[in-house]
């Protein structure tokens, strides 16, 4: 069997969400294509071992900063102190990617710790784009915006993909396509996941997320828990997507019910193999 060696070792193939329990294993891994993603909020600290580990890991593997608290879809402007801390982390760790969410989480000085939905209206779009502009100016770089997982349908003037297309056009941001979120939202709101991808601006996608979901206790909704292996249906969406986009840095996101490192790496290898296959296919087409 021939394995592809076209992707150089520091190229971003399939990555993992970095967990303290796996710091050493990640640092010591030389798996081709491996990269790591962290929430910058967990590293906005005066000092200590977390920063040391990230520093060491960043020397070996590409790093992505995936923010969860800028509240770009909020009514309030992004917090300038938070942006300053984020800029400091970017200057220190030189991440390959920086991303945030199409969501809000802060309102009137309270942080809610969850990614909350916003109505896709013209007014919300204007404000969202203002916030993205402000963030990109403060950080001196463009960011990727992730599509949310939704549990409710809100009234609006446009679809989510129309909202994202327009945000990309106006702000020059890229997109982080979370395929588990696409699936979860499609089931919860009785929509069509493939139809969503048909209208999604794939050219703007700079990263893909894969994660697991679980069914809520009364069985009516899927919850984006990041607490289970990636579902088969999400793997199918992934194959469909990268057949169109070619290889895109892909993250296995696992935050809860954390399995042993080898299990997580096995799931990562599956994505890595599909990426290498997509790379071969793209080369064959060229």
């Amino acid at each position: 069997m021939i394995t592809s060696t076209r992707l150089p070792p520091r190229a971003m193939g399939a990555g993992l969400g970095l967990k303290p329990a796996h710091y050493r294993a990640v640092l010591e891994s030389d798996a081709p294509g491996l990269w790591v993603e962290v929430h910058p909020e967990n590293y906005m600290l005066p000092g200590g071992p977390r920063l040391h580990w990230l520093e060491a890991i960043a020397q070996r593997h590409p790093v992505s900063l995936h923010g969860v608290s800028l509240s770009l879809g909020g009514a309030d402007r992004p917090d300038p102190d938070h942006l300053k801390s984020l800029r400091e982390l970017i200057d220190r760790y030189r991440p390959a990617l920086v991303s945030e969410h199409l969501a809000w989480c802060r309102h009137d000085g309270i942080y809610y710790g969850d990614l909350l939905p916003l109505p896709y209206t013209a007014g919300a779009l204007d404000r969202f784009c203002d916030h993205v502009d402000e963030v990109q100016d403060a950080l001196g770089r463009s960011i990727l915006i992730e599509n949310p997982s939704l549990y409710v349908d809100l009234k609006g003037d446009m679809t989510e993909t129309e909202f994202l297309v327009e945000a990309v056009r106006r702000t020059g941001c890229g997109l982080l396509l979370d395929l588990n979120n696409v699936f979860v939202t499609a089931i919860n709101l009785k929509r069509d996941a493939l139809g969503y991808l048909e209208t999604f601006p794939l050219d703007a996608v700079g990263e893909i997320h894969l994660a697991g979901h679980e069914t809520d206790p009364d069985g009516s909704l899927l919850i984006d828990t990041h607490g289970a292996p990636v579902a088969d249906a999400v793997w199918s969406l992934y194959r469909e997507t990268i057949a169109r986009t070619g290889p895109v840095p892909t993250l296995i996101e696992r935050d809860n019910n954390l399995p042993p490192f080898v299990e997580l790496m096995a799931e990562r290898e599956r994505a890595q193999a599909l990426l290498e296959y997509a790379d071969e296919a793209a080369l064959a087409d060229a």
Partner: peptide, 17 residues
């Protein structure tokens, strides 16, 4: 007033917060 469908999903956010 903002919901485009049923309200059943809203408590998911409240519980998760």
């Amino acid at each position: 007033a903002f919901a485009g469908g049923t309200l059943t999903g809203f408590p998911v956010y409240r519980n998760s917060v």
